[in-house]
């Protein structure tokens, strides 16, 4: 898709954020492994291996670090257009909606990549710690990782919309961060709302608290809910771009 190609061409120094992503993945998984080793006897007694690492590493990844990365990437994508009145120029070509689509797709790729790195890291660490991984274990990691990525797309779509509405890069990131950390608050105060709170979806999808396979209705509900959130965010984004006057 040429809009994607164009967006990639514009993102010259995005690799720096990927390096940061690698570091953060490493940090989280390291923490997870450390936590396992620190409580190895308890976990062994319960027969928990990779799940312990997944849960510990995934918790902060899903709530803080992954949303942070998505927020920064989304903010950069919209920021470059706010500068120098580029949204106006794109609108004068009638290309602003197309470009928005390109950004969404690029962001989706970023989300998948970061999540893939996380899953890969957990796999590697699990093997290094000598866990016996059955095919079902690996399937779990991949599936939960993928579900989490869907949640990541929800955050991405919303943050892209925020980026269109809010000009300041810092405020953008602040909103994304506050909303993400807010999911901790939601869990604390109103745990039932966790199912619908957009910024909590990554954690829900990755099963970082539940640590087991979701049921079919749960999965369908999760996927539909997230798809709905994504569609609404994208729709509103398109509406704002179309109606905006320059």
């Amino acid at each position: 898709m040429s809009a994607l190609g164009i967006e990639r061409q514009k993102s010259k120094r995005a690799w720096i954020l990927l390096v940061v992503a690698v570091l953060l993945v490493g940090l989280n998984v390291f923490n997870g492994a450390g936590n396992y080793l620190g409580n190895a006897d308890i976990f062994e007694a319960q027969g928990l291996t990779w799940i312990a690492v997944w849960g510990q590493a995934g918790l902060l990844w899903a709530i803080l670090f992954f949303p942070f990365l998505i927020t920064v990437r989304a903010a950069s994508l919209t920021r470059m257009e706010h500068e120098q009145a580029n949204w106006r120029r794109l609108a004068s070509y009638g290309a602003h909606l197309r470009i928005y689509r390109g950004k969404i797709v690029l962001l989706a790729g970023f989300v998948l990549l970061c999540q893939a790195m996380f899953v890969a890291a957990v796999l590697v660490v699990s093997l290094a710690l000598g866990f016996d991984l059955t095919p079902s274990d690996v399937a779990a990691m991949l599936s939960w990782g993928l579900l989490g990525a869907v949640g990541g797309m929800t955050v991405a779509a919303i943050q892209l919309l925020v980026g269109i509405l809010v000009r300041s890069f810092a405020t953008n990131v602040a909103i994304g961060l506050v909303a993400s950390i807010g999911s901790l608050m939601v869990t604390l105060v109103a745990p039932l709302l966790e199912a619908v709170y957009p910024y909590a979806q990554i954690g829900v999808g990755m099963r970082v608290r539940a640590l087991d396979w979701p049921t079919l209705p749960e999965t369908l509900g999760y996927l539909t809910g997230n798809l709905l959130l994504i569609l609404v965010a994208v729709f509103v984004g398109r509406l704002v771009l179309r109606r905006r006057e320059h």
């Binding site: 470059m80 120098q84 580029n86 197309r98």
Partner: peptide
């Protein structure tokens, strides 16, 4: 309007591709 972090040619190439 332009993307400051890109060269003149890169900027034009982007417009070319859009159009």
């Amino acid at each position: 309007s332009f993307y400051g972090h890109l060269t003149g040619r890169e900027n034009l190439d982007i417009v070319r591709r859009i159009k």
